[in-house]
């Protein structure tokens, strides 16, 4: 009999607890989706929404601030994306803020990124429109990376050839040049160039090869780390290439102008031509490489990493730079 009396109590506890779990879950979920806080609407027009769907997150400087509430085709080349965004961040979003569609990691879903605007543009109001920008596609990046690597390989080959020529060359110019630090620099640079471009090439190849494994590879921290350090090295080398190129330029100029001893000693015209073309190519490729490196650096690949990671890396890079400069 006593047992029976406890039944309603126990059942009551059971049901209350169960409903509590449910309600807390729903509330937590709702607060994640800003369901229970007041929101405002922002519109943006895109040419291509890249698979964005209703409910995708909207991020402002990496913070989830809202969701995509509606996607509509307006015309054959315009797609309207309506976003509902937490009212609390309204004052931080400027009228000239740019909107971009990106992905939350390769495997993750699409997100809308709102980039901060300028302070004097003023906060946006409900139902305002923000300008959209197109972010780079992975395909574009791969294409560009390929061009850079091809160029890099050509330069390297040329440099190696030139250094070989200089090293093995008979006569005074070789002697003279062998004494010069340029030769050592050149050969050192050539070796570094080879290894770096090989590693970049390897990574790009891997990316290219594994279409399905793409995410895996890019998301894989080891590989991305490799890629990172390769890019860093690349950047350093670029700087040095620049100086070398400049030195070579001076060198060749002085040769061409026929100033003093050097001019006399340079009797090998093929060699001079070689040096000339190489210098031209190096100059051009350096520009190319620097451009590409910047693009890659800016591109979404680095967005794969959460803010923390990125910051860490940034700091790492910053701490490394002064050392290099010394």
């Amino acid at each position: 009999m006593k047992k029976n009396k406890n039944q309603p109590l126990k059942l009551g506890i059971f049901v209350t607890l169960g409903l509590f779990i449910f309600i807390v879950g729903i509330y937590y979920l709702g607060s994640k989706q800003d369901l229970f806080s007041s929101t405002f609407t922002v519109n943006s027009y895109f040419r291509d929404v890249k698979g964005l769907v209703q409910g995708n997150n909207v991020r402002y400087s990496g913070i989830n601030v809202g969701t995509v509430s509606k996607i509509d085709i307006v015309s054959d080349s315009t797609i309207l994306v309506k976003m509902s965004i937490n009212d609390k961040v309204r004052e931080f979003i400027r009228k000239d803020s740019k909107v971009e569609i990106g992905s939350d990691g390769l495997m993750g879903s699409k997100i809308v990124k709102i980039h901060p605007g300028s302070a004097n543009a003023g906060s946006i109001s409900d139902d305002d429109e923000l300008e959209s920008t197109n972010s780079l596609d992975i395909e574009e990046i791969l294409k560009e990376a390929k061009v850079v690597i091809d160029d890099g390989q050509i330069i390297t080959k040329n440099l190696v050839e030139m250094t070989d020529n200089l090293n093995n060359g008979d006569g005074d110019i070789a002697k003279l040049l062998n004494d010069d630090e340029i030769t050592t620099k050149l050969s050192q640079f050539g070796d570094e160039m080879i290894s770096v471009s090989q590693s970049i090439d390897g990574i790009t190849r891997k990316i290219n090869r594994g279409e399905g494994d793409l995410g895996k590879l890019v998301n894989d921290t080891t590989i991305t780390h490799e890629f990172h350090s390769a890019m860093d090295q690349f950047g350093n080398i670029m700087l040095r290439t620049d100086t070398i190129a400049n030195e070579l330029m001076i060198f060749s100029k002085s040769m061409n102008n026929g100033n003093g001893l050097v001019n006399r000693l340079v009797y090998d015209s093929t060699m001079a031509d070689n040096v000339d073309t190489t210098i031209y190519k190096v100059g051009k490729s350096v520009d190319n490489i620097v451009d590409a490196a910047e693009t890659i650096e800016k591109s979404w690949i680095f967005n794969l990493f959460s803010g923390n990671n990125k910051k860490e890396r940034q700091e790492e890079r910053n701490s490394r730079k002064p050392n290099n400069m010394k």
Binding site: V15, G18, F22, G25
Partner: peptide
């Protein structure tokens, strides 16, 4: 009908 959903909440949690 009433309690299986609640059991499901517990199972989820």
């Amino acid at each position: 009908t009433l309690l299986v959903p609640i059991l499901v909440f517990f199972a989820d949690a």
